[in-house]
């Protein structure tokens, strides 16, 4: 049985930074990734706020570069999905679709997935009028009518992106003002084909011929409802941490994020949480990579004191 120093779960920016720091420090580490490098970052067309790229960089390329940067020092990627974990013994066990892995420490870097509206027919209509990636699917709605649900940064960016393609973009937001940072406000207000529907939530998704055809909106002010006909609905209402596989192995907060402070230490010794999956104020690529380095620092400290 091979026992690694560190198993890293998740191949986004936090995971591959941890892999880089671990292998460069001479530790025996493996990274488990279910699909391909980059995580949520790989779904981002243009990244303008990761330093060192004066003309921006696309997220997929940055993910591949982070992987090859870690491989340069011997990091390995195991392509498999983690099914369950057992952190109850000194030697930690991670069960994957390719079999069991054992290690002295584990760094959890599983990130987050787009949050769903939680409406019955939503999953059936995903990719058929209900979408979570405007950058990927927006072009199928050229000159059509779409709605963006949400009021944060990613919703604002999606609405702006779609306004350049589509005939009309509705922005459905449950509050009366955007949560997005100022940089988005002016261009959105200026775009003539963007219309804000303040104080509404999506109550129902209407479908015809197996495709979404509109939605029933409900006022958060007086409870009134009305039907809005759209060709596509782009959902951008935040993220959900990927922690269900942990099954209680570490402590989570009420929203499912792993409770850990800036040391990235969880409530279990030798287990660390990095990137978007951790409780933190700002979820960005720069804070994710920072977590990756910090976690390896404390993992080394743990390994030194337990060997």
């Amino acid at each position: 049985m091979h026992i690694y120093d560190i198993i890293i779960i998740g191949g986004g920016p936090a995971g591959y930074t941890a892999a880089l720091y671990a292998t460069r420090a001479g530790l025996d580490a493996v990274l488990v990734e279910r699909m391909s490098p980059g995580g949520q970052m790989a779904l981002t067309g243009e990244i303008e706020n990761y330093p060192g790229f004066d003309e921006g960089v696309d997220g997929f390329t940055l993910g591949m570069k982070m992987q090859s940067g870690a491989e340069r020092f011997g990091a390995k990627t195991e392509y498999a999905e983690v099914l369950s974990v057992d952190f109850s013994e000194n030697i930690k066990k991670v069960t994957t679709t390719n079999g069991e892995l054992f290690s002295k420490t584990v760094i959890i870097a599983t990130g987050a997935d787009p949050r769903k509206l939680g409406i019955d027919n939503e999953e059936r209509l995903t990719g058929r009028g209900v979408h979570y990636c405007a950058h990927c699917d927006g072009r199928f709605y050229k000159d059509k009518i779409v709605a963006v649900v949400g009021g944060g940064n990613s919703a604002a960016a999606d609405a702006l992106f779609l306004s350049r393609l589509c005939k009309k973009v509705y922005v459905i937001h449950r509050r009366d003002t955007l949560r997005a940072t100022k940089i988005y406000h002016e261009p959105l207000m200026k775009a003539e084909n963007v219309e804000f529907l303040w104080n509404y939530t999506v109550q129902e998704i209407l479908a015809s011929d197996g495709r979404a055809s509109g939605s029933v909106l409900k006022s958060t002010v007086n409870g009134d409802t009305f039907e809005l006909k759209v060709d596509g609905l782009f959902v951008s209402i935040g993220r959900e941490p990927m922690t269900s596989f942990l099954n209680g192995a570490v402590e989570l907060d009420g929203n499912g994020y792993i409770i850990a402070d800036e040391t990235t230490k969880t409530n279990v010794a030798g287990i660390f949480a990095v990137g978007d999956v951790r409780t933190k104020a700002l979820r960005q690529i720069v804070t994710a990579v920072s977590d990756g380095a910090v976690a390896v620092h404390y993992a080394e400290e743990y390994l030194n004191s337990n060997n």
Binding site: A42, G59, F60
Partner: peptide
């Protein structure tokens, strides 16, 4: 070619 998730799936 320009779609991130497509580039994730393509090698698979």
């Amino acid at each position: 070619d320009w779609c991130g998730p497509c580039r994730m799936v393509s090698p698979i």
